[in-house]
């Protein structure tokens, strides 16, 4: 047995543990998570006994077990990247909505509701606010 197998097994188990520990935060979709699980099992079995994934690869018509692992990894990578992309754009959308409504509330608080019969602002934009607004 080569010694490299020990750190590789530990790494695979650690990755699996991390994925499940942070499932809320990372929010991986279930399909992607199952693939990760399958990959981790494959990783461990192929490290212990390379013949097992090799046999599976032969059944599926893939030349080598490591190739099968690579294909699975690509699928997981693409799924995860896409999931993160959608999640990120969703978060950005939420952030923009939040910032926009915050800006409007702030403007209403400062100068009152819009179009109140053209009444002048309660406080004039006088000399008290120009210095800090410039910030030069």
């Amino acid at each position: 047995m080569q010694w490299i197998k020990i750190p590789l097994i530990i790494a695979a188990v650690l990755i699996l543990a991390m994925v499940f520990r942070h499932r809320q935060r990372v929010g991986l979709r279930a399909g992607s998570r199952l693939l990760v699980l399958a990959l981790a099992i494959m990783a461990v079995t192929s490290i212990i006994d390379p013949d097992i994934p090799q046999g599976l690869a032969n059944v599926l018509g893939v030349t080598r077990g490591t190739d099968l692992l690579l294909y699975g990894l690509i699928v997981v990578f693409v799924l995860t990247s896409l999931g993160l992309y959608f999640r990120l754009s969703e978060t950005e959308q939420h952030l923009r909505r939040l910032v926009r409504s915050l800006a409007i509330e702030e403007a209403l608080r400062r100068d009152g509701p819009p179009g109140a019969r053209r009444s002048p602002p309660t406080r004039d934009p006088g000399p008290d606010r120009t210095p800090d607004a410039d910030g030069t």
């Binding site: 910032v99 926009r100 800006a103 409007i104 403007a107 209403l108 100068d111 819009p114 179009g115």
Partner: peptide, 27 residues
């Protein structure tokens, strides 16, 4: 003397238009 709505961070032109529309709809 125009009404001022300030985005605390830069969001882009589309967001700025929508903020303006949302604000004006309050009238």
């Amino acid at each position: 003397g125009a009404r001022l709505v300030q985005h605390p961070v830069n969001l882009g032109a589309g967001a700025a238009y929508q903020t303006g529309v949302d604000f004006a709809l309050r009238d």
